[in-house]
Design a protein around this nucleic acid. Structure first.
Lengths: 349, 349
DNA sequence: TCACTAAATGTGTGCGCACACACAAAATTT
DNA sequence: AAATTTTGTGTGTGCGCACACATTTAGTGA
């Protein structure tokens, strides 16, 4: 109008579609600039009248509180953007079964979604899925575990190295020179090996670079039999017996609650730190049996993941390639806020 | 249609407007229920074609990083909901001048906004403003400082008591039995008196209830001359000289950085804790001169405040009366995440 | 009975945009 | 030069809803 053309032409200019005389195009763009025009997202999506389907593939969330929270975040995001025509379709696979991962992935691919979000739990299989997505032009967001040099839209998750550093820092509060701390991996196999190595590196680096006044020994232990209380108890007691200078244990995942039961009756002064605000951990935190929990914000992981796809697919905005989640230090005194946060944030709609 | 009526009638039912036969109304509601109908927010606001104006009244943000961050949160929220026809109109007053508060308030009232957000810095004046709003039917959100029994839509801010508890907990890490800690108020007059009293109560309660093994003395100090480095230095040195058992200082606001300069050359082992991620504090945190900062999420305060008005005015949803913000424990090792968070969260649009 | 009001319901328009289609002018081809 | 294609541009419809207005039906008094 202002540029002496019809809405149709303006539309063509703004969407780079159809044929427009270069001279006219320039004139329109100039007017658009001058008027500071911004497309009305509401009217736009309303008229577009189509939905963008995004698949979210997560480990079965029945058992696992951690993934349950990630899914909560996904649902939160879904609600926030549902009016903009983004629908989220959830899929689940077995955390311990690569085959299940592949099957679910195939199901998703068959449906040809417009976007995909998943944690690359199994390296090989994840590589395959990434390739499949690329072949089909499906943008993908990977969460929780990073795959270096992937062509994913972005990675959202924790900074393993830094969480190790932080864990070290937390244990160091109560450690005096000459004492020792234990970094304990309660994990089966090498599933998240890289992951754990990074944590260990961060953990060691902290003590290496902060040795001004303290000399702290680091004991690193792996133990797979954590599901058998008896075995675990024996292991823990041995650990304590072996080193009288031990002043703290840093469990590298959410299984920290499992070792608390083993310490019953010890009334030890061991400092205990671990990960994730799952109910059992919180219970022990309240009871002063766990000193610190590091909250990896699994909920934010799901939330930001979906939001990133939304920005890319709907808003057509650029998204940051790597988005590390905050590492919250949770103690008894501030735990409640982090629990509330998850409920209070349902944004829009 | 489904209920044998026209869209007009359905509209009347859903908006409780106009005359509808009770019998028809019931039938429509039943069908709506059955079909799980949800109003399309986009189409709704598009057709509504009006903007809802919300006034936000904050202290002048030029000098004060804390309020600057609150305003950032406000702007973030504004962007998130701009498409839904909510416009935010910012107003500023002088933090130290009640008269300015009143003037600005009057300006806002003259404009008859649809909602108002402000921190009740001055009790009397805030009471007046609250009353004025009520008289004009303007819903209001109060942030930062609570006013008990107000008829505000909601309060969003910190839990002063709990932040005192947390501060005590942080200092207690490095405290041994027989030592003492100082709670230091660097504040002029009694502006936020209640506020500070609550913090002190929390601080003391922590040590009172956690005296199982440690006996810690608490020294509480107020000092108003914090803007004169020489005065402050003298004060701090006196403080240290007076009590050789002193092992930590908890500054009850963001002015914690001011005492760091005074400790130069002391190479003391004092643990220092304070509030807020403002640049100077962060600098000292990185340099290991401040041990802990408590992040009160001023940004979230502004964000949630506007979002609450949005929910009330646009979505017509209920909002929680009291929304406490998380108290983040920030140490050198996790500081960067909290800074990033503020930038990365621009939600929609 | 008719005229008239009030209550109840239906209809139409437009919000700002995307997109299909219609149409004119210019560039080819035959 | 006529027939055809290509390129450029205008028009019209509908997304789902809010709201003004038109229309029908029921209720009232004379």
């Amino acid at each position: 109008m202002k540029a002496g053309v019809s809405t149709g032409t303006v539309d063509r200019v703004l969407h780079n579609r159809g044929k427009v005389a270069p001279e006219v195009k320039e004139r329109v763009l100039k007017v658009v600039e001058e008027l500071g025009y911004e497309r009305n997202l509401l009217a736009s999506t309303l008229a577009y009248n189509r939905t963008t389907r995004v698949a979210v593939m997560l480990p079965n969330t029945e058992k696992d509180m951690y993934w349950r929270q990630t899914q909560d975040g996904v649902e939160r995001a879904q609600k926030a953007v549902q009016h903009y025509g983004l629908v989220v379709e959830p899929f689940f696979f077995d955390y311990f079964d690569p085959q299940s991962f592949l099957q679910t992935a195939q199901t998703i691919l068959d449906q040809k979604p417009d976007g995909l979000l998943f944690p690359p739990i199994f390296f090989q299989e994840a590589q395959w899925l990434l390739a499949q997505c690329s072949a089909n032009g499906i943008p993908k967001v990977i969460v929780n575990t990073n795959i270096a040099d992937s062509d994913a839209l972005c990675y959202i998750g924790q900074d393993s190295y830094q969480s190790g550093v932080l864990g070290a820092r937390l244990l160091s509060f109560g450690a005096n020179s000459g004492q020792s701390v234990c970094l304990l991996n309660l994990e089966i196999g090498t599933q998240a090996a890289q992951h754990l190595l990074e944590k260990e590196r961060g953990f060691r680096d902290y003590f290496a670079h902060n040795n001004g006044n303290k000399k702290i020994d680091i004991i690193r232990k792996d133990f797979e039999g954590f599901n058998d209380p008896i075995q675990l108890k024996a292991f823990i007691h041995q650990l304590i017996a072996d080193d009288s200078r031990l002043c703290g244990i840093f469990v590298t995942n959410s299984r920290v609650h499992k070792i608390i039961d083993c310490l019953e009756g010890f009334h030890s002064k061991l400092k205990i730190a671990g990960f994730d605000l799952i109910p059992t951990n919180l219970e022990y935190l309240q009871a002063n049996k766990i000193n610190f929990l590091i909250n990896q914000n699994p909920s934010e992981q799901g939330f930001l993941g979906v939001m990133s796809l939304f920005r890319h697919l709907i808003l057509k905005q650029a998204v940051e390639k790597t988005q590390f989640l905050p590492l919250d230090i949770v103690v008894k005194e501030n735990a409640e806020y982090y629990l509330k946060k998850q409920a209070a944030f349902e944004l829009i709609g």
